[in-house]
Design a protein around this nucleic acid. Structure first.
Lengths: 117, 117
DNA sequence: GTCTCTTATTCCTTGACCGGAATATAACTG
DNA sequence: CAGTTATATTCCGGTCAAGGAATAAGAGAC
């Protein structure tokens, strides 16, 4: 049981149903029954998705009598954010260049011939 | 060839090899050959991964003689960032709570007496 | 204890994806 | 034109994930 949650984090979020569950839990913690109803999936299927999310560290469970209330765990979000950071820099840079080019180009100038490499 | 790239964005990044390719292209645009060599995959497999990334809108191709130079497209990064935003708020909130709790605890009051053995 | 409610797990089938080998396509070279 | 290089696509076998049905497990209520 090492720290292999990195790989499962992406695969966990790759499934649309699981992203829907995550979005549901963003509003508030919910017991499984509510999630089943909201997702339109069968209860076993939902439980399996919740298991994947749990093993990815994205959700935590709290036992409340017979019910199990799932809630988001904010930690993996930070992990995603960290992964995204370098690309966000690229994005900002390209926005910058776009702005500069729009600034520099004449309105009837079709395009800049890319300098050969 | 519709605009169904939203779903494929996550599935494209779910694969470790594709994330590796994306990381390679973050450094600089590269022709396929370089990516093949860096990934240790076969050329067809790499081409297929590049296709998935292309269809997800994550990379663009520029033809340079016989070579095809792939480069990151920064737009989907913004999409991911937008998706992440609400969760980042949750994360900040929980960091806030943690700070408050750390603030409340006395500095020489260890939360856990480190149960060694 | 039994019964009920809520959730988790197993079994099984279907469908998707990954990988490599072989092949096809495209662009340059002579 | 044939030949070579660089990349894309098809074909196929193996693996893995998803979904439902049935079943098990856990926690009250009686």
């Amino acid at each position: 049981m090492g720290t292999m949650s990195d790989a499962s984090l992406w695969t966990a979020l790759a499934d649309p149903h699981r992203r829907a569950i995550v979005a549901l839990l963003l509003e508030r913690p919910r017991p499984v029954g509510e999630i089943v109803e909201a997702c339109g999936l069968s209860q076993p299927s939902t439980s399996k998705h919740l298991r994947v999310l749990r093993e990815a560290g994205l959700v935590r469970v709290r036992q409340d009598a017979q019910r199990r209330v799932y809630a988001l765990d904010p930690a993996p979000i930070a992990e995603l954010d960290a992964w995204l950071a370098p690309y966000r820099r690229l994005w900002n840079r390209s926005l910058d260049e776009l702005g500069r080019r729009l600034d520099r180009t004449a309105p009837d100038d079709p395009e800049e011939p890319a300098p050969k490499d």
